[in-house]
Design a protein around this nucleic acid. Structure first.
Lengths: 333, 333
DNA sequence: TTAACAAATGAACACGTGTTCAGTGGTTTG
DNA sequence: CAAACCACTGAACACGTGTTCATTTGTTAA
């Protein structure tokens, strides 16, 4: 751990000098490319260890025209499902030897700036968990050979791979469960200005219900999150309507709706059944014990990274649209 | 938006050629350094715009020996306060023109690998929100002139700046509130293997209580999070003990403890008072309406970045230990 | 008119790495 | 024994930028 250069970081040049070989051999050892004699490798590793040498990723990326970075676009981390999704992505990104470049975006402008900056860092891939990337940016990524994949969203460009939870399967599981519990009138609860994934979940549920020739009431929440669900319950009760089975677009709406109903003297599972989406920690709490659809975050993250790597090797492959199976976690409601 | 080079990305060289100037002038324009005539600047900007030129951050960082990246160490994003802290950090990092390099660590080994990788990317700074960075790594960062700052933790190295929520102030606010509500026997609830910040909060509370010559019961949760709090309440009631005021180390313990007490027929604010830490969304929900200490995430993030920039300019400045004021959010309990 | 000066510019180097290409020596094959 | 082959090595170039230094140009002071 000496430091022969005044304050400057040690480079492959220094290692080469100490080991008595050329810098090219040092590079070969650390990039695991080309042949190098066992004896030389040993000398180099020892010298590197002594100096505390570490590859400069900026120089490496500059030369390879590609860094080990992966850009991740997120939004509204306060939503517990989103943060658990980010957690899964981070874990998988690190496991594969990459580093995550995370940016939070609030509007389309920020998304544009973000993706532009990602390409300036020569990222190996971009993961979009929120927002719709504009057409010219996607084109730019394609030109730079930067793979893009979207999670739980719809993107109209054939170069962008997609990984979604299987909303059709979720709808079938929920319908089956509610019907098995004897529900007669079933409703779908969603926020009025929901994201694409929320809308898609509703469409799928509608479709499944139609297949079994049942009507589907729609409850529209005027606000998002817990408060939105709670208020929706109050409005629902005030209007004197009645259902015995509710499927909610996400966990927060579900918890809010359940609490709202409780305030009106109705509780699950006694008076009605309710099933949520996103198996967030809160839904598991004793005060809720909410039956809910569980999205497989690990598998989603795994699939995302294999998409990135596949398209990184061959940018011309067909678009991949993968649906990740979901599970129904049956609890109390 | 032409692309005169076959598939390759446009460089400053191309812009210079099109504008009829030297590459040096292009560099001067985009790094805002040195003088350049108004007319030439205009020509360069126009050419750059036409070609869609963007600075290559890897080359820039390689030359400047410093990238615009800031490494952020996180853990357990499923904890809602941690994700909101990350959200605040991201927002501030982007506002200042940096990019966040986020890594999740589970143990000391991962932390070591992570910080090592951060230095390999020549980050402008490192933010540690979890774990204790080992001594030699901190030394390494200091040698590379990489500022390190810790949030809500204790680090024994004078080169590492610290930003903490003011736990003493929190303790005083809570004590004042509980006493004003007429509480006679007051307790402190924490997880047995809590982090430093949890322990510190307890110590401060103990100290404040001692100053007013009051006893402080300690309730020790054998598990962390919501379930830990809930079980602690059951054990507490089973032992037949009794208090009328509880201060909890974090929001999840508080919610769990409250629910556990409710299962035993006791509820706040009627039978006892309870105050949590971390003003998470769940504590605001109607079913809890928990009185809680609010940490100022925005100010924390702001302070973190000004520490980084200050030490980035002059690495030899004195250690800064800043305590961020907290607020007591009075709700129902 | 000349000297002194400030602003603007381009050539050249440095940053630290990956990779090609031409060699070297040693071993196998005909 | 010559030829062909193989593993191994080092010199040199490329990646795209920031920055120094010398030079040119235009302007002011003596």
């Amino acid at each position: 751990m000496k430091n022969p250069r005044g304050g400057r970081s040690v480079s492959a040049e220094d290692v080469a000098k100490l080991a008595g070989v050329s810098r090219a051999s040092v590079s070969r050892v650390f990039s695991d490319q080309g042949n190098v004699a066992r004896e030389t490798r040993k000398k180099i590793l020892q010298a590197a260890n002594e100096l505390g040498y570490q590859v400069n990723f900026l120089a490496q990326g500059l030369n390879r025209k590609r860094s080990q970075l992966i850009g991740v676009v997120v939004a509204r981390l306060s939503d517990p499902f989103r943060s658990s999704l980010l957690e899964g992505l981070l874990s998988e990104i690190q496991r594969k030897g990459y580093q995550a470049l995370v940016t939070e975006v609030r509007d389309a402008d920020e998304l544009e700036m973000t993706i532009r900056r990602f390409t300036q860092f020569r990222v190996s891939g971009v993961v979009v968990t929120s927002g719709q990337p504009p057409a010219d940016l996607v084109k730019e990524c394609v030109q730079h050979n930067v793979p893009v994949v979207g999670i739980n969203r719809h993107v109209e460009f054939p170069e962008v791979d997609l990984v979604c939870s299987d909303n059709k399967m979720a709808a079938e599981l929920v319908a089956e469960q509610l019907i098995a519990c004897g529900c007669q009138s079933i409703a779908w609860l969603n926020y009025r200005e929901s994201t694409w994934s929320g809308i898609n979940r509703g469409d799928m549920f509608q479709q499944v219900m139609a297949e079994t020739s049942r009507d589907l009431f729609e409850i529209v929440a005027e606000a998002d999150g817990y408060e939105g669900g709670r208020q929706a319950a109050h409005v629902f009760c005030a209007e004197g309507r009645n259902v015995d089975g509710v499927f909610c677009a996400n966990a927060q709406l579900a918890c809010g709706f359940l609490d709202g109903m409780r305030e009106n003297g109705l509780d699950a599972p006694h008076d009605f059944r309710i099933i949520g989406f996103d198996n967030t920690p809160q839904t598991a709490q004793y005060s809720y014990r909410l039956t809910t659809i569980h999205q497989d975050v690990e598998k989603t993250a795994w699939r995302v990274l294999s998409c990135l790597e596949a398209r990184g090797k061959d940018p011309s492959i067909d678009q991949s649209i993968e649906e990740i199976p979901v599970k129904l976690v049956i609890r109390n409601t």
